[in-house]
Write a protein that binds this DNA or RNA. Structure first.
Length: 222
DNA sequence: GCCCAGGTGGGTA
DNA sequence: TACCCACATGGG
């Protein structure tokens, strides 16, 4: 790794301040949001969450009580609504069937075991599993997402084409293994990504990490 | 009209 | 393993 990942996080913290993420009122709402936000803009997820709230469906029992059509209609604004309905059902089956819907008890569980269980669910991949672990179950896990990889590879902190596991291992090796810290770190990379490393066009003028860039300048693209 | 957004699963070589 | 592709809506 070229730069020290922790330097980047500290710099971002000084620039943006604490993010206090994830935007949700309950751990269950985090879980639902983690599924609905897959490859989807958060504004669209908010519409879906609002619909679910109006249907009293932001509890495991409430969401379960919706029919297929009702759930699909509520989450339609977040896109992929047929697939996401199936994904939410799989999550509910796990949560209610295997753990009695008891999120507090889940929080006391062992992180690696919970991660394996989540990854076995249809529709739950690494990012969704880690988001649930960190933001809903308060486990010290660094969430890697498109923003994180884009920012860190562009800045030469990880190699271009770095995989999810590589980025996560770097983060776990460089950052304090502390839930609140890792929560902030991920949120800060998202904040940076949204403002300065948008999509394929480098828009990095004024980037708060400029002083930490390698001498050769920005790594171009992805 | 076109590109993109806080991914994942399935198929093919 | 390494690519493809489908999945769907709303905003710029």
């Amino acid at each position: 790794m070229r730069g020290d990942l922790r330097d980047y996080v500290e710099r971002l913290l000084a620039h943006f301040g604490p993010r206090h993420w994830w935007p949700a009122e309950t751990p269950f709402e985090v879980m639902v949001g983690a599924v609905l936000t897959q490859n989807t803009a958060w504004t669209n997820v908010e519409r879906a969450i609002d619909n679910l709230r109006r249907s009293n469906a932001l509890t495991p029992e409430g969401l379960s009580s919706l029919s297929t059509e009702e759930m699909q209609e509520a989450i339609r604004p977040s896109g992929y609504f047929r697939q996401k309905e199936k994904k939410l059902r799989a999550l509910l089956k796990w949560l209610l069937g295997r753990h009695g819907g008891d999120i507090e008890k889940l929080r006391a569980g062992e992180t690696d075991g919970l991660r394996r269980e989540l990854l076995e669910l249809w529709g739950v991949g690494k990012e969704t599993a880690d988001s649930i672990l960190c933001y809903a179950l308060t486990k010290p896990v660094f969430v890697v997402d498109a923003y994180t990889i884009r920012v860190l590879s562009r800045h030469g902190v990880v190699r271009r084409g770095a995989t999810y596991d590589e980025v996560q291992e770097s983060a776990h090796a460089s950052l304090p293994r502390d839930t609140a810290y890792l929560n902030e770190a991920h949120a800060l990379f998202v904040a940076l990504g949204k403002e300065f490393c948008l999509s394929r066009s480098p828009r990095c003028a004024g980037c708060p990490l400029e002083e930490l860039l390698p001498a050769g300048g920005l790594k171009q693209q992805n």
